[in-house]
Write a protein that binds this DNA or RNA. Structure first.
Lengths: 126, 126
DNA sequence: TTGTTAATGCAACTTAGTTTTAATAAATTT
DNA sequence: AAATTTATTAAAACTAAGTTGCATTAACAA
């Protein structure tokens, strides 16, 4: 439904994403903001920020929800469509701004896809 | 650790996958075999069948675990590496036996990847 | 400044999956 | 074939992520 009123919770959450270029899991945000925002509120605000095209979400390999900043999305159109990368050594998760071609599949209509890649990030592969 | 003894639970579970060519979620198997096998056992047997290269697992869009038959995998090498497709209309999930090229990513080492595609299956796209 | 209602906190709940432990039953040995 | 070993099982309790209901609080428009 999107955000209507500017509140302290929203500022706190947005601030976390401004401080960090990587994706952040909901679980981690709950830990980080434990003393400041209730977890229900965190889930609700994240949900609204996603509706507004500010953040996008995806599931990690463990099924946990991750959020990252959108680039060029709006309330009506989520144009983001890129793979996400999880480093097996340090655990960081980030967006890969590369294009991966999803082939046409005979007789099927592709509406959405999610590509998750696991490996070693720049820092850990060195 | 793999399967050592042949038991009724294993037969029942393998039978489900012989009857069905699509993937089956753990949750669905628990429902189907509710009166016959305890859910703990179902999770454990699935885990062992995966170790043995009989089944492979992946997470669906909702984070729920799905299992499908392997083709040409062994206890030591899981060679399966293909996208999975979930139909938004009928909910079926299956393996796509097509090759999707995952591009090299500069300075990163790719070890594993998972591609999930959502859309309409053959039956529902018609 | 007040009234409306969006947003929040809290507690209770749901759901998928795991752990512990004692009982059961394959498979091996005698 | 009986005894033994130990993998497998069921049951109950638990964990962790995320959701729901509801009373309270606080944006913000009038």
């Amino acid at each position: 439904m999107g955000i209507i009123r500017k509140t302290a919770s929203i500022d706190l959450l947005l601030n976390e994403f401004e401080q960090e270029s990587n994706a952040i899991s909901a679980v981690d945000l709950i830990k980080r903001l434990d003393t400041q925002i209730n977890k229900t509120t965190i889930y609700r605000v994240l949900d609204k920020l996603e509706d507004d095209g500010v953040l996008h979400s995806f599931l990690g390999f463990d099924g946990v929800k991750w959020y990252a900043k959108c680039k060029g999305c709006t309330k009506s159109v989520h144009k983001d469509f890129h793979p996400h990368f999880q480093c097996l050594s340090c655990g960081t998760v980030d967006c890969l701004h590369i294009h991966v071609n999803i082939p046409e599949i005979p007789n099927r209509e592709v509406l959405f896809s999610q590509l998750l890649i696991q490996g070693k990030c720049e820092a850990c592969a060195a």
